[in-house]
């Protein structure tokens, strides 16, 4: 959450792609199988994408699991804005929609899905948000990219790609549904919000 997303096309020369569409596809297929394995066939499974980047990823994982198991997998979206720990570092942000599937979260195995795992603060906020929505039987975490630099004791259960980065870099995940193409890009970091750039209220999508 420290380095913010770059709008697609902004400073394109400074960013290089480390993952392209086919690799992202393969990583998601592998994660889908791992989820099925770990949850023993996906009984009571619910996927919740963390807004914004995690939502299309959760949907893609649900499609893949449905294709293998031939039954629908509840899939929703979680907006964590109201649970962030850095709300007071920037002007109030616009909210996204939280969509909980009709099955609810009580007694379910909830897999939180996000695009980039960085400080772990987003996931901490998501766990708090989930706690107010009900009591899942278990909560797991799936991310497309783990870039390291954790600031909280949080780890992912399913990782698409471990991507060692420097704090001077930023990682952006572009997704077909949001940005028109699939790619993971590394570029120079923007200043931390609150430090030099108080108006950095950019949407999620890369950190």
């Amino acid at each position: 959450m420290h380095a913010r997303k770059h709008a697609d096309g902004e400073r394109p020369d400074q960013r290089r792609a480390v993952l392209e569409g086919p690799e992202i596809d393969r990583a998601l297929t592998r994660i889908a199988h791992e989820i099925l394995e770990r949850t023993k066939g996906g009984d009571d499974l619910t996927l919740l994408g963390i807004r914004t980047g995690g939502v299309p990823l959760a949907r893609r994982l649900a499609e893949r699991i449905e294709r293998v198991e031939r039954r629908p997998v509840p899939c929703g979206a979680l907006d964590i804005t109201m649970y962030r720990d850095d709300l007071r570092l920037a002007p109030a942000r616009a909210l996204g929609r939280t969509e909980i599937p009709p099955e609810g979260v009580d007694g379910r195995v909830v897999v939180l899905v996000d695009d980039v795992l960085f400080s772990g603060r987003t996931v901490r906020a998501a766990l708090d948000a989930l706690n107010d929505l009900g009591r899942p039987r278990a909560v797991q975490l799936a991310v497309l990219v783990d870039r390291g630099h954790r600031e909280l004791p949080i780890r992912a259960d399913y990782v698409g790609k471990n991507l060692p980065t420097s704090l001077r870099e930023s990682v952006s995940v572009l997704l077909e549904e949001l940005h028109g193409r699939d790619a993971v890009l590394i570029g120079p970091a923007k200043p931390r919000p609150g430090a030099a750039e108080p108006a950095a209220a950019a949407p999620e999508g890369g950190r």
């Binding site: 007071r88 570092l89 920037a90 109030a92």
Partner: peptide
């Protein structure tokens, strides 16, 4: 209330509030 109080409050006495 969220939009007025939820983010950084701009004004005397609140500037540069960090946690």
């Amino acid at each position: 209330l969220y939009l007025l109080l939820g983010g950084a409050i701009q004004g005397p006495g609140h500037q540069g509030e960090t946690r």
